[in-house]
């Protein structure tokens, strides 16, 4: 009896460790932007009955990469979702931990909609106007000043005469990263960039991306549903979030034009809408054959009925890839081509 008591914990520990090595379920981590698409594919994949439904965690792109690159072995995830492509520093981390063969799959495109209530009048912005509305410091008459604009009409007479109020996602969000790269940096005027450089405090990218902190750019947390409800209630408020949210709530909110373009399937697909970006996921090649179903999962994800022009991912807001890009990504998925 006494011996049994001594052995029991070890037996349990052994049981757990043997369980850990015998995982028969795909594990996915990563971006919250790609999460809705991956979950839909996973659910369908599970219903086909041959494999278990993959478990998907929403950890954010950066957090997902960290977990993904932690090593090879069943205790590490097989796939990570990303709302941007893998950084070279992350590739190094992966390589250091023995994760060498990585397959990159481009899922589709996503646009960021700058939206407001349906009750408000339709407006068109330029990137520079949006930068001026959001930046912490702007240049006026050749000098850098703290953002002086309180109303939209202060920026440009053609814009409406009410207070600037914009709900923005938190700095950890991939949406914010994309917005920074595509709007804040591109909208930042040349003279402002050279002034930032002349000051030599931080790079002009950083300086252009810094948001104003006087309460007019409101950090809203990751909860996009909340932003939608706020926008619907206040016609003077603007918010930015992924295209799928716009699609799901088109009875409450509308997108403003940016540089004369509105987000739509076509404009996001051919990148004529200026705030469009591709979404990715990355697969550990070493896990194929170890964890059952990865190959089949890739096949389902990149099939025409999922990713194609009339695929089910399109129904929930993913913008399909153009023909050439689709062929490339389908090839990567079937031939398991790795990036280096």
């Amino acid at each position: 009896m006494k011996k049994l008591k001594l052995i029991l914990p070890f037996a349990l520990a052994l049981l757990f460790s043997s369980y850990a090595s015998a995982r028969d379920q795909i594990k996915i981590v990563g971006s919250s932007t790609v999460y809705p698409y991956s979950t839909v594919v996973a659910e369908r994949f599970g219903k086909s009955g041959k494999f278990k439904t993959p478990v998907i965690e929403s950890t954010g792109t950066g957090g997902g990469m960290k977990l993904f690159c932690a090593g090879v072995g069943t205790q590490h995830p097989d796939i990570t979702n990303a709302s941007r492509d893998i950084k070279s520093s992350e590739k190094e981390l992966c390589a250091k931990n023995g994760v060498k063969d990585i397959i990159e799959i481009v899922v589709g495109n996503d646009g960021i909609a700058f939206s407001h209530s349906l009750k408000a009048k339709d407006i068109n912005f330029t990137k520079e106007q949006l930068w001026r509305a959001l930046a912490s410091e702007v240049e006026v008459n050749g000098k850098l000043v703290k953002n002086p604009y309180k109303k939209w009409s202060d920026i440009d007479k053609s814009l409406p005469n009410f207070d600037i109020k914009i709900m923005v996602p938190p700095p950890t969000s991939g949406t914010r990263d994309a917005w920074n790269a595509l709007v804040m940096n591109k909208g930042c005027t040349k003279s402002a960039k050279s002034l930032f450089d002349a000051r030599k405090e931080k790079s002009h990218e950083k300086a252009c991306e810094t948001l104003r902190e006087d309460g007019l750019a409101i950090e809203a947390g990751e909860n996009d549903t909340l932003i939608v409800n706020k926008l619907a209630a206040d016609p003077e408020m603007f918010g930015l979030f992924g295209y799928s949210y716009l699609l799901a709530n088109k009875d409450k909110i509308q997108a403003s034009g940016i540089e004369g373009k509105k987000p739509s399937l076509e404009s996001i697909q051919n990148y004529s809408y200026p705030v469009a970006r591709p979404l990715y996921f990355y697969v550990k090649k070493a896990h194929i054959g170890v964890i059952p179903g990865i190959k089949e999962f890739l096949d389902e994800y990149t099939s025409t009925r999922a990713m194609g022009d009339r695929g089910y991912l399109g129904d929930i807001g993913l913008v399909p890839l153009s023909k050439e890009k689709y062929t490339a990504t389908r090839n990567a998925a079937t031939k398991l081509t790795t990036i280096n």
Partner: peptide, 17 residues
């Protein structure tokens, strides 16, 4: 510890996700 996850299958024991 990774419990914020999309899990379709109803767990049968504490070792299931």
């Amino acid at each position: 510890i990774g419990m914020v996850a999309f899990v379709v299958q109803v767990p049968a024991n504490p070792l299931d996700p």
